[in-house]
Amino acid sequence: MPADGTPADGTPVAAGYRSDTGHHYEVAESDVVFTGRIIRLRRDIVRMPDGVVSQRDVVMHPGAVGVVALDETGQVVMVNQYRHPVRRALWELPAGILDVPGERLATAAARELAEEAHLTAARWDLLVDVLASPGMTDEAYRVFLARDLAVIPPSQRHVGVHEEADMRTQRVDLDEAVTGVLSGSITNAMAVIGILAVATARAGGFASLRAADVPWPDRPAPAG
């Protein structure tokens, strides 16, 4: 169960939250008002600590994983993908939503790396966990660091569809990627966070990395 008390399937519940200072936020009503292909919209009526009732609209998201794939020369694997809401292609990390029931997080990350970048990795570490925009959505994503990369033979590669059909990949020196973040040429949030996080981790000799399978409070561990 996520930290807010909502079940893994996103079913709204009459739940609440009590802060460290004793303030109580009670969910008086909760209804799903829209269901799309990936997201749902939940309307919560919340009683605040001062007794005032207010509406909060929550975009419910299944969560996602992303991969900073760092090769032996210090280059990061980037993918270029069209994103319809902003009407342009963005440089991003290999990534995808958690849409396979029971799939473990590191397995999902490895699948996305194989499908989008045609790579496997022998070494996996946890880089960073992110709440995307907690003022409006429960979307959370976990970014892994993948190293010891190997190229998948062309005959065994996944064939992309939709936005992935014309996806391009490119390896970028990590320092150049950091420059791209700071100059505004890399703006995808996961890519910005992942690139800056791995640059920071590298500066510390990667000593700060966590194991790839540590618990994730914002998403429950899948069964099996």
Rank of each mutant, 00 (worst) to 15 (best):
L127C: 00
N80K: 15
G10D: 02
P217I: 03
N80I: 10
R104P: 08
I39M: 15
L196Q: 04
G22Q: 07
A117Q: 04
A140E: 00
P153C: 01
R157G: 04
T11Q: 11
T107C: 07
G135L: 06
A122I: 06
G205V: 06
T21M: 10
R40C: 04
M60R: 13
T6Q: 07
F144Y: 14
E176T: 13
S183V: 15
L182N: 13
R87P: 06
G135A: 09
R147W: 05
V68I: 09
V76T: 09
G74C: 04
M1N: 13
L90T: 12
G66W: 06
E164K: 10
I193F: 02
V86W: 01
I186W: 08
L127E: 00
A207F: 10
H84N: 14
G51W: 00
G5M: 05
L70A: 03
I45R: 15
D44L: 12
G184C: 06
Y82Q: 10
T35E: 12
L70N: 10
P153E: 06
A121L: 00
T179M: 11
V161G: 10
I152F: 06
A203W: 05
V76Q: 03
V32H: 07
H162K: 12
D50C: 03
T11C: 07
Q156N: 09
M78Q: 11
I152H: 09
A110V: 01
P94N: 04
V128M: 04
H118T: 06
A223K: 13
Q170E: 13
S54V: 14
W216C: 02
L145K: 09
P7Y: 08
G180Y: 08
S155L: 13
